[in-house]
Design a protein around this nucleic acid. Structure first.
Length: 593
RNA sequence: GGAGUCGUAGUUCAGUUGGUUAGAACGCCUGACUGUCACUCAGGAGGUCGCGAGUUCGAGUCUCGUCGAUUCCGCCA
């Protein structure tokens, strides 16, 4: 098809181009018919340029009158200075006086108007994703994502990493998330799994001597979704040989340094803050604390202070091995209604109520529990939290982890409600020394907190032979997360490369030699032939992009995201398949109940 | 698997205690208009109130179920 091809895009012309004869191709964003004067806003991904059509040019004018939203056109004419300038857009000083228009394609009336401040609901936007992506605000996310992609590739190339593609069809392993399964036609009854991550392959590449591996790859997890969780997502996967934790940190800090410098023009600190898992839990009630909250709002354990109080709820908690702890909300008006809302919030986590002490400006203390606490205890609480008039301390008591986690959630809730988050900050934090195991009460067994190949810290190796639950739970690992603004954006560990340590870990999670061989045989086999000390990490690419774009959800960093029920509204997948296809795979569907 | 919110015109929403013909804005169509850029003005078309039962003389409104979107918990690198 012949058509008049563009000489420029719709975002680049300005007053310097005055007098030039140009051709633009693009979509009709809007038309304004003033009777004797006709304006067209022509859009492409670079921007919008105004076209002007005069009725004297009858042929062109008649075409202009036919134009509808989202028609694709080619327009030629001269760049002229506008009579009235639009300061809101980069091309606002000029317009094209059109002497030729060609309609390249018509459009049906779109189901929603394509504008930055889109009004359509999510499902409609997803069904017509291609229209939604015509919005600059959205396509800019994909463009930024591409920039980060390029920075990452260059960065790792510069540091001698080798990009290796690992299989997408792999062996299903039962640990971790639920696998997406792919049936095999050649081996009826057998299945591949899509990778939850290329974990095992990258470790084997270390045994191969590749030394430094990186891959920006798709990962798949068949679990329920969230705003920051898609069934398929992208990670920057990396692994290094002959390294300890600090080497991995250094490489990743360097990567984030370059990304933030290039994309945001921000110089991140040379080394990120570090905090142990235990400290994070005790101070923030979370393994991914948001450090942007004004005043810090750290949790204080006041078990000792209230141990002897007459308030049974507190003294009982302390006596039965639990804790009493609280957080302070600084100088905010806390009404009855707010307290009720927060009480409702903690009740959902199984607490009977929320204790609070309001320290008034006049020195009095307002609280339903103050009558149970003597003056000394009240004063001690006040000084522990460094309270001034106008501050409120919220207190929970009970089982330690539950108290800490709920206070952590309360902290985030208060920060949200009282607008205490400094949105301009980027707070990176390494959370280190995670527990190696997690005890599952219901099944009465240990699970690997990270994954089964995570190396325990040297000083805890002795507990691998222990049969004491507390000792095993106390084992800390060379396992780390990078947290940014309360989001986990990276996770990794130093791996076990010694068979005797691996054996002990398997034994603690109740995996017999036989089972281990069946599930992980190939990697254990590989490890027999000289596995170097190695470790690595995986970066949640979508989450990083979402934060860079200022988005709460990762969906708008992904071209074609899926809904919470993991379906794609545009191409309507998943879908049923023909019986012939199932027959070839040797699969028969169960009848629906 | 559980809890919450939402579903009414092409779109975003309003719709009172269950009561006559379900409204507004934007978009769309027709006409007018030579400096608009959220153009303006005049007129017009457009509805299976997500779907299915039930209660009722009467349901957009109440009840139950179901489907979809979304937020959170469980789950999950």
């Amino acid at each position: 098809m012949n058509f008049c091809k563009r000489t420029h895009n719709c975002g680049e012309l300005n007053i310097k181009n005055e007098g030039e004869k140009v051709t633009l191709n693009g979509w009709v964003s809007k038309t304004r018919d003033l009777g004797g004067l006709f304006f067209i806003d022509l859009r492409d991904r670079y921007g919008i340029t105004q076209l002007k059509v005069l009725p004297e040019n009858k042929e062109v004018y008649d075409i202009a009158l036919r134009l509808g939203q989202e028609f694709v056109i080619s327009a030629s004419g001269n760049v002229i200075k506008r009579e009235s300038i639009n300061k809101n857009i980069p091309t606002g000083e000029i317009e094209i006086e059109v002497n030729e228009i060609e309609i390249l394609n018509e459009s049906e009336i779109p189901p929603f108007v394509i504008e930055d401040d889109v009004k359509a609901a999510d499902d409609l936007r997803l069904k017509y994703r291609y229209l939604d992506l015509r919005r600059k605000i959205l396509s800019d996310n994909l463009i930024l994502r591409n920039w980060v992609y390029q920075i990452v590739h260059k960065y790792f190339e510069k540091h001698d990493f080798v990009e290796v593609e690992t299989p997408v069809l792999m062996k299903s392993t039962p640990e971790g998330a639920r696998d997406y399964l792919v049936p095999s036609r050649v081996h009826n009854g057998k299945f591949y799994a899509l990778p939850q991550s290329p974990q095992l392959y990258k470790q084997i590449l270390m045994v191969s001597g590749l030394d430094r591996y990186v891959q920006i790859c798709k990962c798949f997890r068949d679990e329920d979704l969230r705003a920051d969780r898609q069934p398929e997502f992208t990670q920057i996967d990396l692994e290094m040989s002959f390294v300890d934790q600090n080497d991995v940190f250094e490489i990743l800090e360097g990567m984030f340094f370059e990304i933030w410098k290039d994309i945001k023009g921000i110089e991140l600190p040379a080394g990120f803050r570090r905090m142990t898992y235990d400290e994070a839990m005790n101070k923030y009630g979370s393994d991914k604390p948001d450090l942007r909250i004004k005043g810090g709002m750290e949790i204080e354990n006041i078990s000792e202070l209230v141990k002897g109080s007459d308030f049974k709820v507190f003294s009982d908690a302390a006596a039965s091995g639990g804790i009493v702890a609280g957080i302070k909300l600084q100088s905010k008006e806390v009404t009855r209604k707010i307290i009720d809302g927060l009480t409702e919030f903690v009740k959902k986590s199984g607490f009977g109520g929320l204790g609070y002490l309001k320290f008034n400006e006049d020195g009095t203390v307002q609280s339903p529990i103050v009558k149970f606490l003597n003056e000394e205890i009240t004063n001690n609480i006040k000084s522990t939290f460094s309270c001034a008039g106008g501050d409120t301390v919220f207190i929970l008591s009970g089982e330690k982890m539950k108290v800490l986690q709920t206070l952590g959630q309360l902290r985030l809730r208060l920060a949200e409600d009282f607008d205490l988050i400094d949105e301009t900050r980027y707070e990176f934090l390494w959370v280190i020394d995670f527990p190696l195991f997690r005890y599952e009460e219901e099944e009465k067994r240990f699970y690997a907190e990270h994954h089964v190949f995570t190396m325990p810290k040297d000083e805890y190796l002795k507990f691998l032979d222990s049969s004491d639950k507390d000792e095993i739970e106390s084992i800390r690992a060379n396992c780390y997360d990078l947290v940014l603004n309360g989001h986990e954006i990276t996770s990794g560990s130093i791996r076990i490369h010694k068979p005797e340590i691996q054996k002990k870990v398997f034994s603690i999670i109740g995996l017999t030699d036989e089972e281990a061989k069946m599930k992980f045989g190939f990697i254990l086999e590989a490890f027999k032939y000289g596995a170097p000390p190695h470790g690595g990490a995986a970066v949640g690419f979508d989450r990083v992009i979402a934060i860079l774009c200022g988005l709460k959800s990762i969906n708008d960093t992904i071209a074609f995201p899926k809904t919470l029920k993991a379906s794609s509204l545009m191409d309507e997948c998943p879908s049923e398949v023909a019986t012939v296809q199932l027959d070839e795979l040797g699969i028969e569907l169960k009848k629906k109940k």
